[in-house]
Design a protein around this nucleic acid. Structure first.
Lengths: 343, 343
DNA sequence: TTGTACGCGTTATCAG
DNA sequence: CTGATAACGCGTACAA
């Protein structure tokens, strides 16, 4: 019925032993080159393919990276920024011979923790793309010593690859001060569930202070979630609370910023005439929006690939176990939601 | 060193046999309820987690669905329409106890065919989200009898879940005729590598004919790829070829349509004053664009979930082996890139 | 309920 | 140095 071959069958057919076949396949141990070729050719002919689970079972390696993506935060694969990072990560690790699997906590009837899933799959490493950093399951997971890299949250003890938020915020605020020559600013931030957003807000306050901005809490609004609509609502809440329009709105996530712009348009507020808007991320649509969005470009390729490289280094050279924070440089992309002041 | 438990260890510690442990875990066979509870409690205490690969090795089932996504067509997870379908599919199958894995043809040094990968992983089924239908590897794969569902291409012999393109095109053309009251139309299509795009173009011709549109080939332009820029370029090519502006541009994919709109704006062509634009898909940004795009809404949730349901039915009840084509209804969403003619 | 063979590739050990 | 043998990893299923 199931006529699948295995190394035993093949060994018999070639008058060799199973271990020889294995050696030929994996290029390990000592084996005569001619024998190797003979095996390889035969295998190609008959179309034998080794079974992943048998190899994994024995070698205790799965060549699989578990990915935490979204579950809690209600952002799915639809979120273009994270998807893009994930795509780059995926490409990198596949080149290194690893595959990607989504960590899941509910499978059919079974409920399990992140960690249990990882044990079950024996993943070699973990990549946290987006996750709610208030999630206790995450802390359990990262405490277990499985190599782990994160691009979203800065948890102590995890290797983190993240955009240089300090540089980004600094670029924005200095640009506002030196080029736009404005001082009345307000901030719309992504939800508090993400550490990165928290960090950006904190940086706005500290850097803003040194630059002479007066960024009181009243001028900071946290969106409830990700996405266009959250931005729209956030802008609405913020502006109806303030007694006059800020000169510049710094929105710490592009997808929110687009919603913010929409709200301003609906209110017949001219951009950049009355309010200037600056985003963060440079998602694909930022440049295509009307008006095209001035923003901080995060280098998604770099983020994804660096995370991949770091994780695989960790897996293959476990001696480098001192947690590091990699900051990827960002860049200010000036488009049409801002306008430099005349000299 | 590796202190992981297995059913043998546990069996010994509880003075039971390995098979009893297995039964307790899987709730199969006959087993004393008290024994079962004892085992379950113990397992929870010591934190034992069964190993996926061992189970797979024995049971020859992997509870894994292989997904073909993009590889050839250069669209990645960034493509919001496909990502969204995939997300819904993923959710559905996870509820049914299956996991998703991306089918890959290059792993480290190893190059393999889709089919080889599937053998290696012993996937239970295959889901083709996007793929180049000229890809011969795809035909090899689907010919092997692994349960397979596609949402993109209509290959003979594969179960297909696809939006009702006929209904969609019909809705568009009738809307143009009856409400916009226009006859001069042109079409910008997605790349020929996708069967769905081909089908839409063909339908435009046939339905167009019965409605009295004169849609000659000169008025049909194929974009070179997916995405905003391809749409922009496509519009440019089309309009520079035609001697006068069409009244309505039907763009068979939203991401292209947004690029088309941008091109028209850059040319100072008023939408919908001079040219009206209709898209297809209803991606998230379609409604947020300026102007908001009139388009055909594909039901991504329905598509993804139906595909999931169909595939799992196929896996679990292999007797239903007559290939079917599921057409999911679509809907015309009227926004601001079109304008009804006065009565 | 329990014993045990099985699935299949890997690897340590051993003989030629 | 080449290749063979056998034990191993771990859960499942059927016979006892």
């Amino acid at each position: 019925m199931d006529d699948r071959k295995n190394i035993y069958t093949i060994a018999k057919e070639l008058n060799l032993s199973p271990s020889t076949i294995s050696k030929a396949l994996n290029n390990t141990g000592s084996i005569n080159e001619m024998t190797r070729q003979r095996v390889l050719n035969y295998i190609k002919d008959v179309g034998y393919v080794p079974t992943a689970s048998a190899r994994k079972l024995k070698s205790k390696r799965s060549y699989t990276i578990g990915v935490i993506f979204t579950e809690e935060s209600n952002v799915g694969l639809e979120h273009s920024f994270f998807s893009s990072i994930l795509q780059n990560f995926k490409t990198y690790i596949e080149n290194k011979g690893y595959e990607l699997a989504f960590i899941v906590t509910k499978l059919g009837q079974h409920q399990m923790s992140y960690y249990e899933w990882c044990l079950n799959k024996r993943v070699d490493g973990i990549y946290i793309v987006v996750g709610n950093y208030q999630d206790k399951g995450l802390y359990e997971l990262v405490g277990k010593g499985i190599p782990c890299v994160s691009t979203d949250m800065i948890l102590s003890g995890i290797h983190t690859v993240i955009s240089d938020n300090e540089q980004g915020v600094s670029l924005v605020l200095n640009y506002i001060k030196d080029h736009l020559k404005k001082t009345e600013i307000a901030v719309i931030s992504g939800p508090k569930s993400s550490k990165a957003f928290e960090e950006r807000v904190t940086l706005c306050k500290t850097i803003g202070q040194t630059l002479g901005f007066n960024l009181v809490d009243e001028k900071i609004e946290f969106a409830e979630s990700f996405g266009f609509t959250s931005g729209y609502q956030g802008a609405k809440r913020l502006l109806s609370r303030l007694d006059h329009l800020p000169e510049v709105l710094f929105v710490t996530s592009d997808d929110l910023a687009l919603g913010v712009i929409k709200y301003l348009e609906d209110q017949k507020i001219d951009i950049p005439g009355q309010v200037q808007v600056i985003g963060f991320d440079d998602i694909a649509f930022a440049r295509h929006f009307t008006p095209p969005l001035t923003t901080i470009r995060q280098d998604k390729t770099n983020l994804g690939m660096t995370a991949g490289k770091l994780l695989i280094d960790l897996i293959e050279q476990p001696e480098l176990h001192i947690p590091t924070i990699h900051k990827c440089p960002v860049e200010l992309v000036i488009r049409e939601t801002t306008q430099e002041a005349a000299q």
